[in-house]
Simulated scan of single mutants.
Amino acid sequence: MTSTENHLAAGKAAAGPYAVDVDPGRAGWEHSSLRILDLPPGGRHEFATGDSEWIVLPLSGGCEVSAQGETFRLTGRESVFTAVSDFAYVPRDETVTLTTASGGRFALTGARCERRLPARYGPASAVPVELRGSGSCSRQVNNFGAAGVFECDRLIAVEVLTPAGNWSSFPPHKHDEDREGESRLEEIYYFEIAPAHGREGIGYQRVSPSGNGRGTDVLAEVRGGDVVLIPDGWHGPSMAVPGHDMYYLNVMAGPGEERAWLICDHPDHAWIRDTWPDQPVDPRLPLYTAPAAPGEAPERS
Rank of each mutant, 00 (worst) to 15 (best):
E159D: 11
V141Y: 03
E257Q: 13
M252F: 13
T4Q: 06
G243A: 11
G104L: 05
P255N: 14
N166M: 05
E257T: 11
T275W: 01
R179N: 03
M1F: 01
S102P: 15
H175V: 15
P291M: 03
I188W: 02
P237H: 00
P118K: 07
W29E: 06
A67W: 12
D86I: 09
I156T: 06
W167R: 08
R259M: 13
A147F: 11
K174F: 06
M252W: 06
E200M: 11
I263Q: 12
V241A: 11
H266V: 08
R120D: 07
V227F: 12
V251K: 06
L185D: 03
G42S: 04
G103M: 05
T216N: 08
S52M: 04
E299F: 07
G69C: 05
S85F: 04
E114Y: 11
R184C: 14
F170R: 04
G224S: 09
A15S: 10
V84E: 10
A83Q: 01
V141C: 06
E296K: 15
E53H: 04
N142G: 08
P91L: 08
G225L: 03
V56F: 02
C264N: 04
E180H: 01
R26G: 15
F144A: 11
M246N: 07
Y121T: 08
P209N: 07
V158I: 14
A111P: 09
G233E: 10
L155I: 11
S169G: 10
D268Q: 13
G213E: 04
R77C: 13
P291R: 00
C63F: 12
E46W: 05
P298S: 07
V158D: 10
Q68D: 05
A27D: 07
G43K: 09
E151C: 08
G61Q: 03
H197V: 13
P172Q: 00
I230F: 06
V96D: 04
M252Q: 10
R199N: 07
L155E: 02
G236Y: 03
Y288V: 11
G203S: 12
G42K: 07
G243I: 02
W276S: 09
T97C: 10
Y248H: 02
P294H: 03
H175F: 02
W167Q: 08
A164L: 08
R184I: 14
D153G: 02
G201I: 01
V207A: 04
